[in-house]
Amino acid sequence: MARRKKIYEGKAKILYEGPEPGTLVQYFKDDGGAFDDEHREVVEGRGVLNNRLSEFFMTGLNGIGVPTHFIRRINMREQLIRAVEIIPLAVVVRNFAAGSMSDRLGIPEGTALPRPIVEFYFKDEELGDPLVTEEHIIAFGWASQQDLDDMVALALRVNDFLSGVMMGVGIRLVDFRIEVGRVWDGDFQRLIVADEISPDSCRLWDLRSGARYGKDADGSDPHKLSEAHTEVARRLGVLPTNVTHATKPTLIN
């Protein structure tokens, strides 16, 4: 697909004008990082894997009735998506204590939580994407109470799906982050899953060995990060089983 007008460029993706009104082309870069990852290494092939893995997860969610912005994959690095109005909040679902939750509350990493906990973070890089309460969100007009209720329900449905998929390939879904966008059908507004779902936005631990994939992988070592992303893709069937690294991935169509 020929390049179109650039709409936005972030750490890991570029958005271009889509071929039809209400659409965008999302391009996955090789650099970037997870929502609280300080490392921003360029890893060759990372964008290709994240494009395909996000397609895998978004297609699965669409298939069970969880609405997403994903329309179809265009090529190795691009996908066609619906244009949405992104709510300026990262929605994090935690199944086990880890990362900033363990630091804040003193809960040992790996402790199973009594139920999935949904947290909201205000998307502002300069502020470090701070944790915010529902009171903050409503007071500052970032979302309404109805939006928040819908976002929690959406996030928990995504959690059920991702947890089951990962458990089926021997991986524990510790936590993950999604973004949510508004779309309108006439005068009716609804919320859908947007941005991406990939190892960069998930904390993933091997059920047997405890090996860490996704955002918990060693981001200071590009080779290890590449291997971690590739292992997730291989287990999910996105890569052939004989691929050992993701320097130049061979994808299954």
Rank of each mutant, 00 (worst) to 15 (best):
R203L: 08
G63A: 12
I64S: 10
A153R: 15
I87G: 07
G128F: 05
P114R: 10
T250P: 00
I197C: 05
G45W: 01
D187E: 13
D124K: 15
M151F: 08
I252M: 05
P114W: 11
Q79G: 06
G170W: 04
D37G: 13
L80H: 07
Y27Q: 11
Q145C: 08
I137Q: 06
V84N: 00
I74L: 13
T250S: 00
T23N: 09
K6T: 15
L53N: 02
R208D: 14
P249I: 01
A2L: 15
L24S: 09
A98Y: 03
L156H: 01
F120S: 03
L127F: 10
Q26S: 14
R208P: 01
S226K: 11
H229L: 14
V165C: 09
R52G: 02
D195L: 05
D129W: 03
I252P: 01
G219W: 04
L162C: 04
F120P: 00
E227G: 01
V132S: 02
A211M: 07
T230Q: 04
V152H: 05
S209L: 12
E55M: 09
I138Q: 06
M166P: 04
G210R: 10
I252A: 04
A12V: 08
A217P: 02
R208A: 07
V180C: 03
A139L: 08
D218F: 09
I138N: 09
Q145P: 04
